[in-house]
Nucleic acid binder design. Structure first.
Lengths: 156, 156
DNA sequence: ATAAATTATTTCAAGCTTAAAATTTTAAAT
DNA sequence: ATTTAAAATTTTAAGCTTGAAATAATTTAT
């Protein structure tokens, strides 16, 4: 490979790195803000919110393993979060009759009500945080992001 | 406000939410992959790598408070990470003569050498993960991301 | 000079997170 | 039928993370 082409590759690598660092900064800023608001407004945490959101989409409930793979976190992690949600009455564990190893987790009516309340307000937070983005840029961004494929990573 | 305009606002909110969810998915996928590779290849963690990266940029070292605000994490968090880096010989704590409350943290030669080694390989990981992004789209994306301002969040 | 407020850092308790090991149950192979 | 392998989940140990409280030192106000 010629030196000129090698230099181009290095520049490309640096540009990808820049994209990653910028992506990381934005998502960390937004995540920190969301965590803070969930804590102050709703006395809850992002992992708990994520679990409720996943369960809301599945009316019939989810197995522990389905939850952990949907959220891309470890099994043991979900165990702990569910324990706390159960003791708060937002979620129930139901044994699966066909498979005595498995547990299905479902939202309680209380959990569903609480999630819907939070989700509505949460959507407003996101919109206000991304206020600087005009409709045209948002269209381009959504298109670009939808087409990004992370090579080497598990595809959720 | 007319119903038609209200509907547009709701659509805009949903689009912002979609951008956020997509952004979050990408950064979590990449972060998970990077954490995994740091663990397997270098027996280290992302927070430790982040601290080394911050210290590498500041030859004269950083105070604990400067580190925690640069990384957008709590003071107590940095305390623990630095403790482990010190016991591994990658970092030293130097008392500040003018202010007996403060501590300056610096890379040791070992820490710098180790960081440079990892950083070079890390850059390659990022580039390969974002391989699906062609140069043209990468240009547009970097431009868009650079202009995003997160309203209501602390600006790093 | 003294008191009060601020700043730098650490400690603490609680929760999040992971990988690895252990349990229990189911399925497959012999 | 028995053994073996695979799957679902929990437990455990270690590290990350936070907010709040505690310490210690500096700065500001009186």
């Amino acid at each position: 490979m010629s030196n000129a082409i090698q230099d181009l590759d290095i520049d490309r690598d640096k540009q990808k790195l820049r994209i990653w660092l910028r992506l990381l900064k934005i998502s960390r800023q937004m995540e920190a803000e969301i965590r803070e608001r969930l804590r102050v407004e709703f006395h809850t945490t992002l992992p708990r919110f994520d679990v409720l959101a996943a369960l809301y989409r599945e009316t019939d409930g989810m197995k522990m393993s389905a939850l952990s793979s949907a959220l891309m976190v470890s099994n043991g992690n979900v165990t702990g979060i569910i324990e706390r949600l159960v003791s708060d009455g937002y979620v129930v564990r139901v044994p699966v009759s066909e498979d005595r190893r498995a547990m299905v987790v479902k939202l309680t009516p209380t959990g569903e009500k609480e999630f819907l309340h939070m989700a509505k307000i949460h959507e407003g937070w996101i919109a206000s945080m991304l206020d600087s983005l005009d409709a045209k840029d948002a269209d381009i961004l959504v298109e670009l992001l939808d087409n990004v494929q992370i090579k080497g990573a598990k595809t959720l």
